[in-house]
C-alpha cells in the first residue's frame, strides 16, 4: 500500500512529461518564416517598376521564394546602358504567403551629355522612388487548372525627386500612381510562360519625366505582354512588349521592347540579361541597349 504513492506520482509525471513534449513539439516543428520553397524562376525577376515580373512587364507573380505558408524577400540591382543614357535601379520586395507583394525601388537615370544639351548640366540625373503593392486574387502560375492563370491587381506609387524640372519639361505632376491587372501562366505542356498586363498610367518615361503633360493629362490604359520559353529548370528565354502613353508636348515617347534571358545559376540568384529598345527619350531617338539585372531572393 505505501508503495502505491510513488508509483502513482511516477505515472502522473510520465503523463505530464508526455504532455509537455507534445506542447514543445509544435514550436519545435513550426514552419519556417522563410521557406525558400518556390520552384526555380517561378517568382519572376524584378521589373523596371520594382515589382516582380519580367524586365519590362509586371507579372502576377509574388516576389521572393516563399510558398503560400511563408514569406519571401528579394533584392535587386539593375543597370541599362543606352546610347545616350544610363539607367540604374535597385530595390527590395517582400512577398507574404505568395499572396501579397510589397516593393520599393529607386531609379537613377543619368542623362550624360544630353543633360548639357537640355540645359540641365552634364550628367544630370533624374531620380524616382517607386512604392508598389500587388495582390494575387486567384489562380497560380504553375499549379491548378491549366487554363486558369494567376491573376493579380497592383498599384505603383511613383515619386519623381525632380519636381521642378519635370514640371518645366511640361509634366502635369511629379507624383503619380499606376494601377495594374495582370494574368500570368506557365503552360507546362508547352514550357511557355504567357503574361498579359493592363496598366492604367500617366507616367512619362516610366515616371522619370513626371506624370501627364500637354498632349494627354490623365491616365490611359496601356498593355504589357510577355512570352517566355523555359529552356531548362534554370534558364528562360523570352521577349516583352510594353505600350506607353505619349503625354509630353516637347518629346515623343515610344513603346518598349525587350528580348531577355533569365538564368538561375543557384537557387537564390537570378541573372537577367536583355536587349532593350525604349525608342525616343527626351528627343534623343533610337535608345536601344543592354540590360543586366541581378536578383537575390529567399
Amino acid at each position: 500500500m505505501p508503495f502505491s504513492t510513488p508509483k502513482l506520482i511516477l505515472h502522473g509525471l510520465r503523463r505530464t512529461a508526455l504532455g509537455a513534449a507534445l506542447l514543445l513539439a509544435s514550436p519545435a516543428q513550426a514552419e519556417p518564416l522563410l521557406d525558400d520553397a518556390k520552384l526555380l524562376l517561378t517568382g519572376g525577376v524584378t521589373s523596371v517598376d520594382g515589382a516582380s515580373g519580367g524586365g519590362l512587364a509586371t507579372w502576377s507573380t509574388i516576389a521572393g521564394r516563399g510558398s503560400e505558408r511563408a514569406i519571401g524577400i528579394s533584392a535587386h540591382v539593375t543597370g541599362i546602358a543606352l546610347p545616350d543614357y544610363g539607367w540604374q535601379s535597385h530595390g527590395l520586395a517582400l512577398g507574404i504567403h505568395d499572396r501579397v507583394e510589397l516593393a520599393y525601388a529607386r531609379v537613377n537615370f543619368d542623362t550624360r551629355a544630353v543633360g548639357a544639351a537640355l540645359g540641365l548640366g552634364r550628367g544630370f540625373r533624374f531620380n524616382q522612388d517607386i512604392f508598389s503593392a500587388k495582390l494575387r486574387l486567384v489562380g497560380d502560375l504553375v499549379y491548378g487548372p491549366a487554363l486558369l492563370p494567376a491573376i493579380a491587381v497592383g498599384a505603383a506609387h511613383k515619386r519623381s525627386l525632380d519636381g521642378a524640372i519635370v514640371r518645366a519639361v511640361g509634366a502635369a505632376a511629379a507624383k503619380g500612381t499606376d494601377f495594374t491587372v495582370s494574368a500570368t501562366k506557365l503552360l507546362l505542356s508547352r514550357s511557355i510562360l504567357v503574361n498579359a498586363t493592363a496598366r492604367l498610367t500617366r507616367a512619362n518615361q516610366f515616371g522619370l519625366l513626371g506624370f501627364g503633360g500637354g498632349k494627354q493629362r490623365g491616365r490611359t490604359v496601356q498593355f504589357e505582354g510577355s512570352l517566355a520559353w523555359q529552356a531548362s529548370r534554370r534558364l528562360a528565354l523570352g521577349g516583352e512588349f510594353r505600350t506607353r502613353p505619349d503625354n509630353l508636348g516637347i518629346a515623343q515617347e515610344n513603346d518598349a521592347f525587350d528580348l531577355f534571358a533569365a538564368w538561375a545559376p543557384v537557387r537564390n540568384l537570378t541573372v537577367t540579361a536583355a536587349y532593350v529598345d525604349v525608342g525616343s527619350v527626351a528627343t534623343f531617338k533610337g535608345q536601344r541597349g543592354a540590360l543586366l539585372s541581378l536578383q537575390a531572393a529567399f
Partner: peptide, 22 residues
C-alpha cells in the same frame, strides 16, 4: 514539363494544409 503538366492540376488533392491566412 509535359508530364508535370498532367500532375500540376492535382495540387489541391495532394496537399492538405493550404495557404496560411493573412
Amino acid at each position: 514539363n509535359r508530364f508535370l503538366a498532367k500532375l500540376a492540376p492535382m495540387d489541391r488533392h495532394v496537399t492538405e494544409r493550404g495557404e496560411k491566412r493573412l
